[in-house]
């Protein structure tokens, strides 16, 4: 099956499941209240995140044909997303400044004068388009990787911290082995083995990034295990699984949220370093920043590329962090008790 078909299927599955989640949240009083107060606290941040998500979704729905791509003949029989179609015939020859009518160097007239909100790049691609294409990549890198890494670290971290003994030894072994390997070597090896695509880079990043959080979870579980209520529950003969689900996991919730937020931004940021090292994802903001690294020392300076990538990145991370903070306040029962 072709990649774009899979993308369509996954996107629709995600949409359906999020509708289901919303319905489920509405049923549970606790969660719908929590979401309500989240919405009350951070309407703008949620709006921004939703905006990014919308762009990401629009860029994940593909179909073939019905496109006006100018000189680019191949596009006519390629699958293109909604975003691609919006910018189908926007190609220029080289750099142009935001909203300019002429090229930046040499002043040749543009094909679409005054149309490029954030100018064009070295080979004449619209920068707004590139930044929008970066949204999907960033969401995939931050989201997908965290979605793989966090459950992994919870599973291993809790079992190691809670059960100790042999389980702890095995987890300790796997963790230490992975952590002792240079991340770059692991990434290169994994990416080479799976082929170079966004998803395989996400999996590789997940494999290299779960260890840190796992260690934190293990440490925290070690502490929680000794808490009175856990001891009491155990004395009462509550099953281990119940104890983990009822007492350990909820007490780790805030850590999960914080870690999700931190890893999300950390991953999106570290992708820029990876792009510099040559293991980056095609079309990411990291690549734009890496490219703009040299554009900044151009004279006259070409700033719009890095500004677009930097602002998109900053906007997303700020919003995600804000929402993450609010969720933490809401979900953490202790803060709930204290807040007026």
């Amino acid at each position: 099956m072709e990649a774009w078909v899979i993308s369509n299927i996954v996107t629709s599955l995600l949409l359906v499941s999020s509708v289901l989640v919303v319905l489920a949240v509405r049923r549970s009083r606790m969660w719908s209240e929590a979401m309500g107060s989240l919405w009350k606290r951070r309407p703008i941040a949620i709006g921004v995140v939703a905006f990014y998500l919308a762009i990401g979704i629009l860029d994940s729905i593909y179909w073939v044909g019905g496109i006006n791509a100018g000189e680019d003949v191949v596009s006519a029989h390629e699958a293109k997303s909604v975003i691609d179609r919006l910018f189908a015939d926007s190609r220029e020859r080289s750099y142009s400044a935001p909203l300019a009518d002429v090229e930046f160097y040499g002043s040749a007239p543009l094909e679409n004068p005054g149309w490029h909100l954030m100018g064009t790049d070295l080979i004449g691609r619209d920068v707004v388009y590139l930044a929008m294409k970066g949204v999907r990549v960033a969401l995939l890198i931050g989201g997908l990787t965290s979605l793989i890494a966090i459950p992994l670290s919870l599973l291993f971290g809790i079992s190691a911290g809670y059960f100790g003994g042999r389980v702890d030894d095995v987890v300790f072994f796997v963790m230490s082995t992975l952590a002792s390997m240079p991340t770059l070597l692991l990434l290169i090896a994994l990416i080479m083995a799976m082929g170079r695509s966004t998803v395989s880079i996400c999996i590789a990043l997940a494999v290299t990034s779960w260890v840190g959080f796992c260690r934190l979870v293990r440490g925290e579980t070690l502490k929680l295990r000794e808490q009175d209520y856990v001891q009491a529950a155990r004395a009462l003969g509550v099953s281990e699984l119940q104890i983990i689900l009822r007492h350990i996991l909820p007490n780790l919730a805030h850590l999960v949220i914080i870690t999700f937020v931190l890893t999300f931004s950390g991953l999106v940021l570290s992708e820029a370093v990876l792009a510099w090292l040559g293991v980056g994802v095609d079309g990411s903001w990291g690549q734009m920043i890496d490219q703009a690294r040299s554009e900044l020392s151009r004279d006259p300076v070409v700033w719009w590329n890095i500004a677009a990538a930097g602002l998109s990145l900053f906007g997303l991370l700020l919003a995600v962090n804000m929402v993450g903070d609010a969720i933490r306040d809401i979900l953490d029962p202790r803060t709930l008790r204290e807040s007026p």
Binding site: D72, S75, L122, I123, A275, L277, Q287, D290, Q291
Partner: peptide
């Protein structure tokens, strides 16, 4: 890395 890939993108776009 992107700086090296962009010229290749240009070549490929010419063939497109």
């Amino acid at each position: 890395n992107s700086a090296q890939l962009i010229p290749i993108r240009y070549l490929v776009d010419s063939w497109r």
